[in-house]
Design a protein around this nucleic acid. Structure first.
Lengths: 227, 227
DNA sequence: GTCGTCTTTGACGGAACTCTGACGCCGGAG
DNA sequence: CTCCGGCGTCAGAGTTCCGTCAAAGACGAC
């Protein structure tokens, strides 16, 4: 869940923000002054900060600097001041966005989403999906199969077939489904393809290809991958 | 130098932006319609995009989507519309900021700086910039390759290709992905480029280019860099 | 203009991959 | 027993894909 830190000394604005944010399933913390804000930011590690510049105890820009000293968390500034200098100062101090009051809640939320979105890691990230068996290891992201200390080379078709089976580990996959996923929707009855390529996979991955333990045939139905 | 792509069909606005940006030592490209913009973005790889939503040939939001399909470059939207819906739509489509006309140049430049700043890599980044192999060393930050006691000269395209492969060390990178990252999103099937440049890299970096150990071909799928 | 560098393009032989048919094995049904 | 359908195995034909080379085109420097 995304955590938001709201910093504002006007209770009605804080209340409005908190209600709206909680309704959209954000986790919300609130502070009424700069000192509390900096403390809360350190303690709660928010994913985004909404900061009103007019605080009772310190200048809003100082809060920005205080945060930027140790974090790159997105900071969205609220302010009643329309002056260009104020905006420039806040943005150059490290703010990510600047919204003048009165503001529309829709717009604020959209800007919040934008700020959160761009601080997210790249979706196609480095998370390696690895499946382990007694004899070999499959890394779906890297498209690698490791077996007995060395990499196994698979052809595109072999990979595709393996991928479908591994993604359905433990489940029976029908011949029709395999054919359509690997060879295309117009295939469905060419079971000889399956026989040939399943044999390849077994030869390359099974300890004893004649008695497969991981690529199991269910006669008349399909195949199943077991760890 | 920071490169900015300005997209607007009003000549006087473009001129004002270009003059101001160039005075501040930005490298500026300009497009007056969406199609040109998308093409320029691919060709010039800007660090930030300034986009007017009112274009003659296509909806501004479509331009945002077109860019977001393949890049996370910051997009700063300009618009004459003050409507909240417009803003929300643009921001949710992937824009980073939204400025309504008329705008102050100081504010716009400050927002531009903010957008560029946050897209910069962390200064004290923990990313290991240097990759070592038995035969050569790649320094991604310094853009240098060292081999056998001397620097190897690489052309821009060779570098780009090497960079993508090294950033994905051990992982298979599809031909399509390589083509799109190095040559641009409109490429994807010109595999002969890959063949030519992969041969160049091997000739310059592999001990035995005919039997590559680090730049591995996976027929029909892509290439892989191994340490 | 001329030069040098880099990129794009086309052509070719060889390697890798996919498809196809033939054959044998096995278990169940007649 | 024989027949038959489903499966595994094998090897060759056909196709696609890749590495290599060379030459033409694009571009900037001088």
């Amino acid at each position: 869940m995304t955590r938001v830190l709201v910093i504002d000394d006007e209770p009605q604005i804080v209340r409005a923000l908190v209600i709206n944010l909680k309704a959209r399933h954000y986790d919300v913390d609130a502070a009424h002054d700069g000192a509390t804000a900096l403390q809360l930011a350190a303690a709660r590690q928010p994913d985004v900060v909404v900061l009103d510049l007019g605080l009772p105890d310190m200048d809003g820009v100082e809060v920005i600097r205080g945060l930027r000293g140790w974090t790159r968390v997105p900071i969205l500034v609220l302010s009643a001041r329309h002056s260009s200098d104020e905006k420039v100062e806040a943005l150059d101090a490290g703010a990510d966005d600047y919204v003048t009051k009165p503001f529309g809640m829709d717009e604020l939320l959209a800007r919040l989403r934008a700020a959160v979105r761009r601080s997210e890691p790249v979706p196609g990230g480095e998370d390696d999906v690895i499946v382990d068996t007694a004899e070999f290891t499959v890394d779906l992201a890297a498209k690698k199969v490791h077996r007995g200390g060395r990499d196994v080379r698979l052809t595109p078709t072999e990979w595709h077939l393996l991928e479908v089976l591994v993604r359905n580990t433990g489940r029976l996959v029908s011949q029709r489904q395999l054919l359509q996923e690997v060879w295309g929707p117009s295939y469905g009855t060419e079971t000889n393809y399956l026989r040939v390529y399943m044999a390849q996979l077994r030869r390359k991955l099974e300890a004893d290809p004649a008695h497969p333990r991981h690529f199991v045939t269910e006669p008349g139905m399909g195949y199943r991958f077991e760890k």
